[in-house]
Simulated assay, not measured.
Amino acid sequence: MVIIETFKNGVKTIKVNRPWKKNAFNMEVYKTLTTILNKDANNDKIAVTLLTAVGDYFSSGNDMSTSMQDPDIAMKAVEDMVEAFINYPKLLICIVNGTAIGIGATLVTLCDIVYASDRAVFDTPFLKLGLCVEGTSSFSYPFILGRSVASEVLFLNRKLTAQEACNYGLVSRVIPHSELDEFIKDLHKYGTLSVDNIKRNKAAIMENFKKIYSDCNKREFEVLKECINSEDFSIAVQKFLMRKSKL
């Protein structure tokens, strides 16, 4: 079971559950998250959705070993998942419990509120892997961090600590890791909020961003197709396979 779902008192909790792979997202994770969000969008028993992960990693990014088998299908699965995040009409809170790499570091910007463990690190090694920005980060990172810092993070692979991410506004609050479980339990008090009023207010906010995010998502995947056909990506894949063969 790559995703663990629980529901209690108006709060849905979604946990990525591949700790043996440092919670790398494979096709099953992408498709399951998409299905859950699209289904829960129409379930008005749910007021708040919490997204986190099991273990020491929030996500180590895309699982290259599965996505390379059929890149077109894998890209479509990621694009659909991002769209499900964009269109989710209820309150979506992300709790980054550890290191967040690649898609793990970018999809947080699609959530309404982001909290992070003091052990969290945000890492976007797209250029190093011969890939391009994803998860609408070509818009959201410059918008949140400012263009200069975002370019340093996305192009030069500057890693952000949880506190740095908080200082720049990527994260709302940093939580001591030892207190994270209790903090998540406390978030359940927001399950009593009016679902209808959450939807009204979120729709008012997202009216400013939804088209920008959706257009950005489509544009990023057009660029990603170019990247996958490039020599840079071929070299990165060869290095990945060499590292894997040594394990």
Rank of each mutant, 00 (worst) to 15 (best):
K244F: 13
D232P: 00
G135A: 00
D56V: 11
T124Y: 02
V11I: 06
A204R: 10
P176D: 11
I228E: 08
A162E: 03
Q69F: 08
D232N: 10
K76C: 07
K244D: 11
I228Q: 07
N9T: 14
K8R: 08
S140Q: 04
T109W: 01
V195F: 04
T161F: 03
K21W: 06
K15L: 13
F122I: 00
C227Q: 13
K21L: 11
I14E: 06
E207P: 03
Q163H: 12
D40V: 08
A41D: 10
Y213I: 03
R119K: 15
G10S: 01
A24V: 12
N201M: 09
I93P: 05
F139I: 01
K199T: 05
E28R: 05
H188E: 14
Y88R: 07
V174Q: 02
I228A: 08
I103W: 11
K90S: 02
V174F: 01
K199D: 06
R147W: 07
G191N: 14
D56G: 10
N87G: 05
L145A: 01
D123W: 01
K128F: 15
N208T: 14
L92A: 07
I113E: 15
L107K: 04
A74F: 10
S140K: 06
D44T: 10
S234C: 04
A120W: 00
K76T: 08
F25L: 05
S230T: 08
N62K: 08
F58V: 09
N217P: 05
K31E: 13
V48A: 09
G191D: 12
D40K: 12
K218M: 14
K246I: 05
R158Y: 00
I95T: 08
L145T: 00
V82H: 05
I212S: 02
E164V: 04
N17I: 06
G55M: 05
S230F: 11
G104Q: 04
G146N: 08
N97I: 02
F58G: 01
E79L: 02
S138I: 03
L154E: 06
D72H: 15
N87I: 08
F143E: 11
A41G: 04
N201Y: 10
D118F: 05
N43I: 05
D56W: 13
F155D: 01
A150F: 00
H177R: 12
E226K: 09
M1H: 14
K31A: 12
K21I: 03
A77M: 07
S214W: 02
L187W: 13
I175G: 09
P125D: 13
A203D: 09
K76L: 12
K128A: 15
D63T: 12
E222L: 13
H177D: 15
